[in-house]
Every structure is written in C-alpha cells, then in structure tokens.
Amino acid sequence: MIDLDDTDRAILRALLADGGLSAKAVGEATGLSQPAAWRRIRRLEEAGVITGRHITVNADALGYGVSVFLGIKLAGRGRASLADFERAVTAIPEVQLVQHVLGLYDYRLKVVARDIADFERILRRRIMTLPGVGDVESNVLLSSETRPLPI
C-alpha cells in the first residue's frame, strides 16, 4: 500500500472524473506543473494504484437494453470444475463481468442482452449449457448508479 497525500488524491479524483486527461490538464487541475503531474501519475501507476484508463460505453446506444445479474451455483466441486466453468463463461461475449464469490452462489455474472427474448436465448443456449452449472438465479437490472471510490 502506498501513502497518498492530498495532491495524489486530487490527481486521482481528476482522473476518475476524466481518465483521458493529459498530464498538463491534471497539473492545471491540481496546481502542479506538467512534469510534476506526469511524475506523480507515473508513480501512482508503478505502485499499482492506477491500473489503467478506461472509457465508458453506453450499452443502450449499442442496442444492449437489458442487463441481468446471475447467481450461479456449480453442481460439481473442485478445482477442475471451477477452471472449466471460468474458461467457458469468459468466452461468451455478452457476459461482461465474472466474479467468483462466497455465499449462496459460487459465481456472479453480469450479462447484457438486446432484450428479454435475447437474454432468454443467451441463458438457455449458452449459460445453462456451461460445464458444471447447477442452480441459476436471475436479477434484471432496473437502474444503477456508479460511484467513484472515496479518495
């Protein structure tokens, strides 16, 4: 873990608001020169605090109007069944998130689909046929709000 000062936190807040900012723009937003901002950004990257910069794509604009969270309980147990499931599920493009979790289910997935009929097709033909799938629970996303980490 790295110790962050107020300037580091300001840099992170600026980059969380807009990951495409240049070092010059980050410097202007935080009161640093471009070289000083660049050095600090680089240090945060090297320490693993910043692991990448991403764009956000509107799924609705691309025709994916339905998001569904699935709880998956595997029928079989063991390292081989986990690896087989993970390898197969990550090959499905509509599966946007795969989380191995503790609790009632073994995995939590986020699946995007064009509509409910498309989701049903993905569920029946792709997810239910994956190796080791036992119980499945679906939760259709009605709305969401993404919040940045408190820095």
Rank of each mutant, 00 (worst) to 15 (best):
W38E: 06
L32K: 04
R43E: 09
I92V: 11
R125M: 12
H54I: 12
E94H: 08
I50F: 02
L62N: 09
L104M: 15
K110R: 13
R9A: 07
P93C: 12
R9H: 07
I92C: 10
L15A: 01
Q96F: 05
Y64F: 15
G103D: 15
G31A: 12
P35V: 06
I55E: 14
L44R: 07
G19T: 02
W38M: 04
H54R: 08
L15P: 02
E120F: 12
R9V: 08
I92D: 05
E86Y: 06
A29P: 01
E45D: 14
T30C: 13
R79W: 10
L123D: 10
V111K: 01
Q99I: 07
T146Y: 15
F119P: 03
D135T: 03
G103E: 14
D106L: 02
L15F: 00
L142G: 13
S143H: 08
T7D: 12
I151L: 13
N58D: 15
R40K: 15
D84A: 15
T90F: 09
Y107F: 14
P35N: 10
T129N: 13
I55P: 06
P93G: 12
A47C: 09
P150T: 10
D115S: 06
D6G: 07
L82D: 15
D135A: 14
P150L: 12
A14L: 07
D3G: 11
G65Y: 09
K110C: 11
V136R: 00
E45W: 09
A36L: 12
A36V: 09
L130V: 06
